[in-house]
């Protein structure tokens, strides 16, 4: 096979790739815009997610489709493969994927007054005697997703600071792939402690106080960049702008405002990539540990 034929083949591939990428934008009316989320944030959140996804389609004037997967890993794969255009992903998968295949930040929700940030809570059962994270040594602990910042990176960063790894520190740890599941696992005492996304916890405290009242927060991390909405790098600039505009103006639209209120989000804002530098730093620290960062969704067992 000669260079020309290689070039030719490459061109063909590129053309096909162009077609794949450009087609959704050009034949907008036929192809639905796919938006992916995980259940990591809140289980049983489907109805609210459908609402805002439908809202976006309505504003764009084209159909939208909600794609839901269990883990961030699966979402990252979908983004990389171009099977979805837009996704809600945690800051950690963002910084990994950005470095890996160059996805772009679209907007981020502002939940707290401080800005588009959130925290990682360490929670224990409400009647637990544990008051500090260090006291959870030798106990059962729950993480959410191995690619979750608040549900995994922040606690392993804490452990790294103590010169510990999860398997060395805890008697047993599990992945629930859901922050709300973490809250429930603590509430029913399946585990004796868990790390959860502050936005999810606060949302549950407002909507299901019976559940959160059986738990208590013993530690709150410093602020980190909140779970952003990302878009494939390959998506047309025009569509990117259109979508971004929908989100940024959502709080000014009555229907959009209603949806935001339900989601307990003040508004969507444009965020810089530097917002996630703290995550990059923690990742660097943790990766220096002898234990490789768990990128696979299988839990380890002591």
């Amino acid at each position: 096979m000669g260079v020309s034929s290689v070039l030719c083949f490459t061109s063909l591939i590129s053309f096909c790739g162009f077609l794949l990428v450009a087609l959704p934008g050009s034949v907008a009316a036929a192809e639905p815009l796919r938006i992916a989320i995980t259940s990591v944030l809140v289980e049983h959140y489907l109805d609210v997610n459908r609402q805002w996804v439908a809202y976006v389609g309505e504003k764009l004037g084209r159909p939208t489709e909600l794609v839901q997967r269990r883990s961030y890993k699966e979402i990252s794969d979908l983004l990389q493969q171009g099977q979805v255009e837009v996704a809600f992903v945690c800051g950690l998968p963002y910084v990994i994927d950005r470095a890996k295949f160059g996805e772009e930040l679209l907007v981020a929700p502002q939940v707290y007054e401080e800005g588009p940030v959130y925290y990682s809570y360490v929670i224990v059962p409400s009647d637990s005697r544990v008051e500090r994270f260090e006291q959870l040594r030798g106990k059962r602990y729950a993480f959410s997703d191995p690619l979750s910042n608040s549900g995994y990176l922040v606690p392993t960063y804490l452990l790294a600071g103590m010169g510990e790894t999860p398997s060395g520190f805890f008697k047993r740890y599990i992945f629930t792939y859901s922050h709300s599941a973490n809250v429930e696992a603590v509430a029913v005492k399946l585990v004796e402690g868990a790390s959860v996304d502050s936005y999810v916890y606060d949302y549950l405290a407002a909507t299901n106080p019976a559940l959160t009242s059986r738990t208590k927060i013993i530690q709150r991390s410093p602020p980190h960049g909140i779970t952003p909405l990302v878009i494939r790098k390959e998506t047309s600039r025009r569509l990117k702008e259109q979508i971004r505009k929908v989100f940024l103006e959502m709080h000014e639209d009555p229907k959009g405002r209603e949806i935001l209120k339900t989601m307990m989000i003040r508004r969507f804002v444009v965020v810089p990539d530097s917002l996630f530098n703290s995550i990059r730093e923690m990742r660097r620290v943790v990766e220096r540990q002898p234990l490789p960062l768990a990128l696979q969704p299988a839990a380890t067992r002591k």
Partner: peptide
């Protein structure tokens, strides 16, 4: 098989 006590807990629950 997946060593998922939470998943199993949900089933049992």
């Amino acid at each position: 098989l997946q060593d998922d006590p939470w998943g199993l807990y949900k089933v049992a629950r």
